[in-house]
Design a protein around this nucleic acid. Structure first.
Length: 579
RNA sequence: CGGGGCGUAGCGCAGUCUGGUUAGCGCGCUUGACUGGGGGUCAAGAGGUCGCAGGUUCGAAUCCUGUCGCCCCGACCA
């Protein structure tokens, strides 16, 4: 491909709207152009990269036994009603408007994911356990009514996703969900490895759906919107929402202070009370009242900690917990909101482990405008149940005692054991070996293709521009033909271009009539892994220059050695990215 | 959805407070000349419903009202 016959609108400046590196560089390198908030055109150069990501994903999915199909973006809303997700997804579920309210438009949604559609396929065609297990996947455009698209292509309303769904008759055993899940997990490692991404697999929160396993594939970057925690010894990594923490030890600091009621008029929050009473938040017990299955559930955490509602629900064995409303709080505590405490409270109370090692604590008095100090568990109230029900914070340790580090990150893939949620809701079952109908046990597995591109740029860029992994670079090599009026330069450049192309190398020939610096800047901005420079100066000694973008190393190569040298560099890079 | 900011040429911006020539500047683009290993120089050009609608005024990019869009922080994120 020749530059002058291609289309690469690079730019020195980036729009003020772009604030994260991947967004700025994708615009400047001419990869994308925004159409509306959360939707982008992939310009030819950007599309080449996206297609390479897609090819890797497809290859590894096929290798793992996936079967590709293609589902529509338009779905009947009835199916979404069947699974209860019209309500669950709310505004995120995009609907066609403009109709009378009862025509096909208003009964059509744009799919943010495809569980419903694939489950219907399974219901229609998968009649026997003999057809299982099976794994269907597609690479398709998804639509989500994100409240706030941001960070370029990292969070958009329209994006390209690979979504796979596996069907089984059982969780365990040969052909079971566990096995199918593991296959996908392994395939994901292969995919992200080949894409050259510095990814981290973390335990993820599987949410109210349940299931014992869910993993997210994360790339650490400041532009991310999730946090992961990782133990120093590398043995533990989890999404912050999920992260388990080691118990805190008892410092035996105090424990003899008398229980005392203090007047705290209007001081309700931890900050207000700690400021008023001049005690540290860590000396306070935060008492949060939830509702679960219609009953009140009280959580106690240290004042400087936050309740992790998923952990709480799981620990309490109640599934989803929701914060209680003012009425229930008043009824339970006999006080206005802001003065709840464990002493004398008649409800199921679950204390975070950290609360069990507190002494002479401060907490609400269950009396409007009053708190109590000198509170000690065991003496002033009993802790019946305690465990890990809080969010991890800086300084916490993993369950094995290794220190936890926090990293901002972006999610690029997610594998998930769904179980029978959708198959039951949509009455999708097949006959098992025992002749009885069984709801499909399902898994689902997603990868954000656009995010892979952006994450790669976030991970690999410098002040000059992008530095692509070889596997997903739009071109492996750029040939900078300096001084195109020299016949020797153009003919050699063209020859190298043709030979490299014939050798299966993706090569772009910069044949523009521009000055050298201009071409170099563009080459570095776009981030071709390899740059070949053909110019008068080199030709005097019959050599061309070969430079590696990632390292900056350069070497002189004889023209007849170029193809072999480049081939070796490309292959080596592709191999190392695979691991 | 709450808070903040911004809409002037393809991109980056000035001008708006205090209304008044033909709305400017840089990058990019076109033509020509020079130049040619790190975004080069000179000259001549093209390119604008000042987001949109209404209002005030002799006169609106500028003032008023409404509206749309975009970005950032937060909330939300099966």
């Amino acid at each position: 491909m020749k530059w002058t016959e291609f289309f690469i609108p690079t730019s020195k400046e980036s729009p003020t709207e772009a604030t994260v590196p991947s967004h700025q560089l994708m615009i400047r390198a001419g990869l994308i152009r925004q159409v509306v908030a959360g939707a982008y055109t992939y310009l030819p150069l950007g599309y080449r990269s996206l297609r390479k990501v897609e090819a890797i994903v497809r290859e590894e999915m096929n290798r793992a036994g996936g079967i590709e199909l293609h589902m529509p973006a338009m779905h009947p809303i009835e199916w979404w009603e069947q699974t209860g997700r019209v309500a669950a997804m709310g505004e995120v579920l995009l609907r066609l408007g403009g109709g009378s309210g009862d025509d096909w438009r208003s009964r059509t949604v744009l799919g943010p994911t495809h569980e419903e559609v694939i489950t219907e396929i399974a219901r229609a065609y998968l009649n026997s356990y003999k057809q299982l297990p099976v794994n269907f996947y597609q690479i398709q455009t998804k639509f989500r009514g994100e409240a706030r698209p941001k960070s370029g292509v990292l969070r958009t309303r329209e994006f390209l996703m690979k979504d796979a769904y596996s069907f089984h008759t059982a969780k365990e055993g040969a052909g079971g969900l566990d096995e199918g899940y593991q296959k996908m997990y392994d395939a994901y490692r292969a995919i992200f490895g080949r894409c050259g991404l510095p990814y981290i697999v973390v335990e993820a929160e599987s949410g109210p759906i349940g299931g014992d396993a869910s993993h997210e594939f994360m790339v650490p970057t400041e532009a991310g919107e999730d946090y992961l925690v990782q133990s120093e010894d590398g043995s533990y990594a989890a999404n912050l929402e999920r992260a388990a923490v080691a118990p805190l030890s008892d410092q035996h600091d105090g424990g003899n202070a008398p229980l005392r009621e203090v007047h705290t008029p209007g001081f309700k929050t931890i900050d207000e009370v700690s400021g008023f009473l001049k005690c540290e938040p860590r000396k306070m017990i935060k008492t949060i009242i939830y509702e679960a299955n219609g009953s009140p559930l009280v959580a106690l955490v240290r004042g400087d900690h936050e309740v992790n509602e998923a952990k709480l629900g799981r620990f309490a064995g109640v599934g989803r917990v929701t914060p209680a409303g003012p009425d229930l709080i008043r009824k339970l505590t006999g006080a206005e909101v802001g003065f709840a405490g464990p002493v004398g409270l008649n409800a199921r109370v679950i204390a975070d482990q950290a609360v069990t090692v507190m002494h002479d604590a401060v907490t609400g008095a269950n009396k409007t405008d009053y708190h109590i100090t000198g509170v000690n568990a065991g003496r002033d109230f009993q802790i019946q149940e305690s465990g890990d029900i809080r969010m991890a914070v800086e300084g916490d340790r993993a369950p094995n005692g290794s220190a936890l580090a926090f990293k901002k990150c972006i999610e690029i893939g997610h594998v998930f054991k769904l179980g029978t949620k959708y198959s039951e809701a949509m009455d999708a079952k097949c006959l098992d070996a025992d002749g009885k109908p069984k709801a499909f046990v399902m898994g689902c597995y997603g990868i954000g293709l656009n995010r892979i591109m952006a994450a790669a740029i976030e991970a690999f860029h410098d002040d000059k521009g992008i530095s692509w992994p070889m596997s997903i670079a739009p071109f492996h090599v750029v040939i900078c033909a300096l001084d195109i009026r020299e016949e020797a330069v153009t003919s050699l450049s063209q020859k190298l271009h043709d030979e490299l192309g014939a050798a299966g190398i993706d090569v772009l020939l910069d044949d523009r009539d521009a000055r050298p610096g201009f071409k170099f800047k563009d080459a570095e901005l776009i981030g071709f892994p390899i740059r070949l420079t053909v110019g008068k100066k080199g030709l005097v000694e019959d050599l061309v220059e070969l430079q590696i973008r990632r390292t900056g190393e350069s070497q002189k190569v004889a023209p007849d050695q170029v193809v072999a040298t480049v081939r070796r560099l490309v292959d080596t890079a592709l191999r190392s990215e695979r691991t």
